[in-house]
Nucleic acid binder design. Structure first.
Length: 421
RNA sequence: GCGAACGUAGCUCAGCUGGUAGAGCAGCGGUUUGUGGUUCCGCUGGUCGUGGGUUCAAGCCCCAUCGUUCGCCCCA
């Protein structure tokens, strides 16, 4: 048997309703905040991600789906969206007509790694980017959007963690200080972290390895090195969040895995998940647009993993998974009645009443059972009697009560019955 | 990429120290012939993940492979 590739999943009709409802919420909340949808290609020139995400990050180092196309160019299935959005904004010079771009997206992404719960090779993210503002108000706007989204989705068990990675000068200075400190402790660090010392020292702070815990606890934090600009930016973010009534904690060790962040970074963490606890996160990236030949454009954005959201909702909100049910099922008793049955079905459908009918020539009992299984609110029985007399039998499946109707008033009768049930 | 566990009917699982497979649910049909969801009865459905090997004999033992799960790494 041919199976779907490792780390990929079919989304079947039994769960599609939850996906559609989530997508509706994404669209609605994004629109509430004035964000507009953007769609970009599923693959890009590999360079798009190499430049922005950082060559020493795991995403680029070992997780990208990269392949040569037939012309010999290196292509990569997108592992995230921010780089693609930045590329598109520069390519179409969107900021020329409106220097502030509020954009959102939802789609599939690809990372080549070992699948486990809540982590797949093809996965789905929702995200938003606020492009063109360096102000802390933009950072907060994005966080408020996420918070509104989570609460509208019905997710309660999460917390917000924030940190600042400051501006470039501070970050470089801090990185030096941190490396100085860590080198003293090098022998007691985990092998992974010893490796990170050269490549991505900030990531050591985020290590969960027990060996690193002691060193991390007493490591200098970036908060001790903030200059006036960075400190003011971070303070304003905190102030605005507080005014908005958003609870948060400051985690000086939150650094995110990608190279492009500066100033505010944040993560929404589920308290209901295991190892894959991060629901979504984001931060400010002020230096990405130059990479694509655009002018300096400060921006802030975030992304959240849909599979993880669904994992939680599956337990807390099972009604999300309810499948769509038809309003009416036509029960057709013999071959001669099918044309009449079909005529009635079309009549109902043209009035916006979802209607199914038997297409297998099954028995009355079987058709009734199917109507029940599909959750049809109403059945309309058509046999020889109805066909010759023009009197239709309309049954309310919940109460079991039956009425008769004619072709002329059938819509009226069905509408009334639907309103009552 | 590393470590561990697990793959038997559509689903959840049983299957003794190796003797060519079973239950519940679901599906289909029936219960006096035009009424579902509850009872009762019957039926369909599996090259036991796949490919090798050991054996008179493999769902069970061995090897490989694919997949899943849980960790590590990292992240959504």
């Amino acid at each position: 048997m041919i199976q779907s590739p490792r780390g990929t999943k079919d989304i079947l009709p039994s769960t599609i309703n939850a996906w559609q409802q989530l997508e509706d919420t994404f669209r609605r909340v994004s629109t509430l905040f004035g964000y507009q949808e953007i769609r970009t290609p599923i693959f890009e020139n590999t360079e798009v991600f190499m430049r922005t995400i950082g060559e020493n990050t795991d995403v680029v180092g070992k997780e990208m789906y990269t392949f040569p196309d037939k012309g010999g160019d290196s292509m990569t299935l997108r592992p995230e969206m921010t780089a693609s959005v930045a590329r598109a904004v520069v390519q179409h010079n969107l900021t020329a007509t409106n220097p502030l771009q509020r954009l959102w997206y939802v789609g599939e992404f690809f990372r080549y790694e070992r699948p486990q719960k809540g982590r797949y090779r093809q996965f789905h993210q929702f995200g938003a980017e606020c492009i063109g503002s360096a102000a802390p108000e933009a950072d907060v706007e994005v966080i408020l959007l996420v918070a509104k989204l989570l609460s509208d989705i019905g997710l309660k068990e999460f917390s917000l963690e924030i940190n600042t990675l400051a501006n470039r000068e501070v970050r470089i200075l801090y990185r030096e200080k941190l490396v100085e400190y860590l080198i003293e402790q090098k022998s007691s660090l985990s092998p992974e972290s010893q490796e990170r010392l050269d490549k991505n020292p900030l990531r050591v702070l985020d290590s969960k390895h027990p060996l690193d815990r002691v060193a991390i606890e007493s490591a200098p934090t970036i908060l001790e090195y903030l200059d006036d600009e960075s400190a003011l930016h971070f303070a304003t973010v905190q102030n605005l969040l507080t005014i908005a009534g958003i609870n948060f904690t400051i985690s000086p060790r939150l650094v995110r895995g990608l190279d492009y962040y500066s100033h505010t970074v944040f993560e929404f963490v589920s308290t209901a998940l295991g190892a894959q606890s991060a629901l979504g996160g984001g931060g400010r990236y002020n230096d990405m647009f130059e990479e694509f030949g655009g002018k300096h454009t400060p921006a802030v954005g975030f992304a959240m993993g849909i599979e993880r959201i669904l994992m939680i909702l599956e337990q807390t909100n099972p009604t999300l998974y309810k499948q769509n049910t038809p309003d009416v099922m036509m029960i057709t008793l013999e071959n001669e009645s099918y044309p009449f049955s079909q005529t009635i079905a079309q009549l109902l459908r043209n009035d916006g009443i979802s209607t199914v009918m038997d297409v297998q020539g099954r028995s009355l009992k079987a058709q009734m059972r199917e109507a029940d299984r599909l959750g049809a609110a109403i059945t309309i029985i058509i046999g020889e009697n109805e066909r010759t007399s023009g009197q239709l039998t309309v049954k309310n499946m919940k109460t079991g009560m039956q009425e008769t109707a004619t072709q002329e008033n059938i819509i009226e009768i069905v509408q009334k019955m639907l309103r009552l049930s």
